[in-house]
């Protein structure tokens, strides 16, 4: 009995450490004022954020999963023809070869093509994105990203909220998923208990208990 408890506890702690929370891994922390963090994670600012993105970021960055391409591409009449053929989100190889000259132009001025930001929220999280966009040189010294948003924390937070709305499912969708998850788990637990009770009765009838 003691052995069983010991080995079970060992296994549970082990999987908790590797799957849920690992205290041995050091994670960078970025200080973000509470009010801005709240705005950056609230997707109701996404619409304003999109406008701010178009004004401040679109010169270099695309958000392909939202059909938003860099400004020079967006002004190109070819884009519409291509979107009629391939849909809102162009395949990456099509986008990169048709608009190669625009992307090479950016590469010449910045040293590399500024990344597409479709999934950036999932990669970096709101704290990093907020801190980096506001003061790029402080978070990542030597980066070629200009400090376009310097001194505008509220607008930066709204842009991060827009990135979140593109990367993550909408709040209604999330609620649906939560409901789905809770019902699946509840079903399985109830079925497990019923099976166990039924087994008791079957075994009693067979005289095996």
């Amino acid at each position: 009995m003691i052995r069983a408890v010991f080995l079970t506890a060992l296994a549970v702690v082990f999987f908790f450490v590797i799957w849920v929370y690992n205290p041995f891994v050091h994670k960078e922390k970025y200080e973000v004022p509470q009010q801005y963090l709240k705005m950056a994670t609230d997707v109701s600012y996404a619409k304003e954020g999109k406008q701010l993105f178009e004004q401040n970021c679109q010169a270099c960055h695309s958000i392909r999963y939202d059909g938003v391409y860099i400004a020079s591409v967006q002004a190109n009449p070819n884009l519409k023809t291509l979107q009629e053929k391939y849909g809102k989100v162009l395949p990456r190889n099509v986008y990169e070869s048709v608009f190669q000259s625009d992307l090479i132009g950016l590469k010449e001025s910045f040293g590399k093509v500024p990344p597409d930001l479709s999934t950036m929220y999932l990669v970096k999280g709101p704290e990093y994105l907020f801190a980096f966009t506001l003061e790029p040189q402080k978070v990542l010294p030597g980066t070629s990203m200009p400090a376009v948003m310097a001194g505008r924390p509220e607008e930066t937070a709204k842009i991060v909220a827009y990135l979140k709305s593109v990367a993550e499912p909408s709040p209604e969708e999330k609620n649906k998923r939560t409901l789905m998850g809770v019902s699946v788990i509840a079903y399985l637990v109830v079925m497990g208990i019923l099976l166990w009770l039924w087994r008791g009765r079957v075994l009693k009838r067979m005289g095996l208990h």
């Binding site: 998923r177 497990g192 099976l195 166990w196 087994r199």
Partner: peptide
């Protein structure tokens, strides 16, 4: 039914843990 029902019940518990991770 001795083992099938016992391990069937355990299996439901396992799947519940599995779907907890899948959804949350």
């Amino acid at each position: 039914p001795y083992i099938t029902l016992k391990e069937g019940a355990y299996l439901m518990g396992y799947l519940a843990v599995f779907f907890f991770f899948v959804f949350f």
